[in-house]
């Protein structure tokens, strides 16, 4: 029982991170109809910024919390700038070309990070105290607890933003019906830019929170991105709550499968994410929370 609980909690902790990456993907998908393959690499780049700000040996040695804040702010500006410079020329292009552009971004950012920073693996401190909370046979590290708390707060903040503020409403409207939005005075391009900025900022946060476990390197986000895709597909790709719930479910499934099916072990874990994507696409293509659009035809 304790082992089961332990795996459940580990799964939830990891799953929240997958959920955050999925949320970043969903945000851009909802705003632009675009699947952003560069999401993980953007997050990785921002995590390097955090590392540069916080590392005592190679960077400025700021407190880690300040480093993360800097990385997240940088992420917002980076995302907005990418939208303006790289994506906007393809705003009216078909989805195939847009996806190829984001694949190109993936490669470019990856190479750029290795060139600007380092191709080596670097350490990043956790913003949370070390040690763990022990209850019976279950131990939850403060890092895990902190990650869950921070991402929950982030999710609630986003819900407020989109549900209650004018900016959030304008972003939703602009992604749903750009033409009517323009007729009401909404600068649709600017809303897309903000959407990309938010998405990249979320990615930066996820990157900084996962980095203490996986270290900082140009390839650090690639596995996480795949799990994020699985989470987004499971949640429905156009549903923000679905992304988070999907993330937690992927995390838990992963923890259980690798824990209870010895053959899967650690090497095949990625395959479970992939199998999950395939299964959802076959059985319920709109995901668990995805909406079949209510538009009348």
């Amino acid at each position: 029982m304790a082992l089961f609980l332990q795996r459940l909690i580990d799964g939830i902790g990891n799953g929240m991170l997958y959920g955050a990456v999925a949320l970043a993907l969903v945000l851009i998908y909802r705003a632009t109809g675009m699947v952003n393959f560069a999401q993980g690499e953007m997050a990785m780049f921002c995590t390097f910024i955090t590392w540069k700000l916080a590392d005592h040996e190679f960077g400025l040695g700021l407190p880690i919390v300040a480093g993360i804040a800097g990385g997240v702010i940088f992420g917002f500006l980076f995302g907005a700038a990418l939208e303006r410079v790289v994506i906007r020329p393809f705003e009216s292009a078909d989805h195939l070309r847009q996806m190829i552009v984001t694949l190109g971004l993936f490669l470019a950012i990856n190479a750029l990070a290795a060139w600007i920073f380092t191709a080596d693996t670097q350490r990043l401190a956790s913003p949370f105290p070390s040690g763990a909370l022990r209850l019976g046979g279950v131990s939850v590290s403060y890092h895990q607890l902190g990650v869950i708390a921070v991402l929950l707060v982030m999710a609630l903040a986003l819900r407020e933003l989109f549900g209650r503020t004018r900016l959030g409403l304008a972003i939703r409207g602009a992604s749903m019906n750009p033409e009517s939005s323009r007729l009401l005075g909404v600068d649709v391009s600017r809303m897309l830019m903000i959407g990309w900025g938010l998405s990249a900022a979320i990615g930066a946060l996820a990157g900084a929170l996962v980095a203490p476990a996986v270290f900082v390197s140009p390839g650090m986000m690639q596995t996480l991105l795949l799990y994020g895709f699985a989470a987004a597909v499971l949640g429905g790709f156009d549903s923000a709550p679905g992304a988070l719930v999907g993330g937690v479910m992927v995390g838990v499934v992963q923890a259980m499968v690798s824990g209870y099916v010895p053959a899967v072990g650690t090497q095949l874990q990625l395959a479970t994410a992939f199998a999950l994507i395939l299964m959802v696409l076959l059985v319920r293509p709109q995901g668990l929370f995805g909406r079949v659009s209510v538009e009348r035809v």
């Binding site: 939703r172 409207g173 007729l183």
Partner: peptide, 12 residues
């Protein structure tokens, strides 16, 4: 401008 046909935000 109140556009022709259905210019509403259908999911809002």
């Amino acid at each position: 401008h109140a556009p022709e046909g259905r210019g509403t935000f259908t999911d809002l």
